Measured scan of single mutants.
Amino acid sequence: NCLEGLIFVITGVLESIERDEAKSLIERYGGKVTGNVSKKTNYLVMGRDSGQSKSDKAAALGTKIIDEDGLLNLI
């Protein structure tokens, strides 16, 4: 459970895995996936064609922004 207690938001199109697979992977390792960035969000996983508003909010809140490889490296 290397992601225990961590909260993730996924945005954009992921290249190597589907969004549902990424969500399942995060949950399997103890993390939680939500739909919107908040002060409780630990990581924003940004894929291709992701919206600017979520990354702006993450930056404003100090949320770590990672890509798909960054997510896989956490596991």
Rank of each mutant, 00 (worst) to 15 (best):
Y29R: 08
M46S: 07
G5P: 01
E21I: 04
E27K: 09
I65V: 11
E15Y: 07
I65A: 04
I75P: 04
T34I: 09
A22H: 00
N1C: 04
S53V: 12
S50A: 15
D67V: 01
T34K: 12
L44Q: 02
R28L: 08
L74T: 02
D69C: 09
K39A: 14
S38G: 08
G31D: 02
E27Y: 04
T11K: 08
G35H: 14
L14T: 05
G47D: 06
A59N: 09
Q52K: 14
L25M: 12
L61D: 09
M46P: 00
I65H: 01
Y29L: 11
L25S: 02
T34F: 07
L61N: 07
G62T: 03
E4A: 06
L25G: 00
D20E: 13
Y29K: 06
D20V: 08
S50H: 14
V37P: 04
S55I: 15
K23F: 03
E68G: 09
V45E: 00
V45Y: 14
G62E: 04
N1Y: 06
V13K: 15
E18K: 14
S38M: 01
I65S: 03
M46G: 03
S38C: 11
L71H: 03
E4T: 10
A60I: 07
G51C: 15
V13T: 15
T11C: 09
E68R: 09
L72P: 02
A59P: 05
S24E: 13
L14V: 03
I17T: 08
L25A: 04
L25D: 03
E18S: 15
T41W: 00
D56A: 13
N36H: 11
G70R: 04
Q52R: 14
M46D: 04
D49T: 09
R19T: 12
L61Y: 15
I17D: 04
G35L: 13
V9Q: 03
G62S: 05
V9T: 13
R19P: 11
S50C: 10
V33A: 13
K57V: 13
Y29V: 02
G12A: 00
C2R: 10
S16H: 15
V45N: 00
I65Q: 03
D49F: 09
L25I: 07
L71V: 02
L14Q: 04
I75N: 02
T34Y: 14
E27F: 01
L74C: 04
T63F: 05
E18F: 00
L6F: 05
A60R: 14
S50I: 05
N1R: 09
K40A: 12
S16V: 08
V45M: 01
E68H: 13
L25H: 00
R48M: 06
G51W: 09
D20L: 08
E18P: 15
L72H: 05
A22N: 00
V37I: 15
I75C: 07
A60Q: 12
F8V: 01
K40T: 12
D20H: 13
I65G: 01
N36C: 11
D56H: 10
G51R: 13
L61H: 08
L61F: 14
S55N: 10
E21H: 10
C2E: 03
N36F: 06
F8Y: 00
R48L: 05
T63I: 15
E27T: 06
S16L: 09
I75K: 01
A59S: 09
V45Q: 00
S53A: 13
A58C: 06
L74S: 01
K40Q: 12
G35C: 14
L71E: 01
L61C: 07
G70M: 06
S24M: 13
G12V: 03
I26S: 03
N42K: 03
L6D: 03
I7C: 10
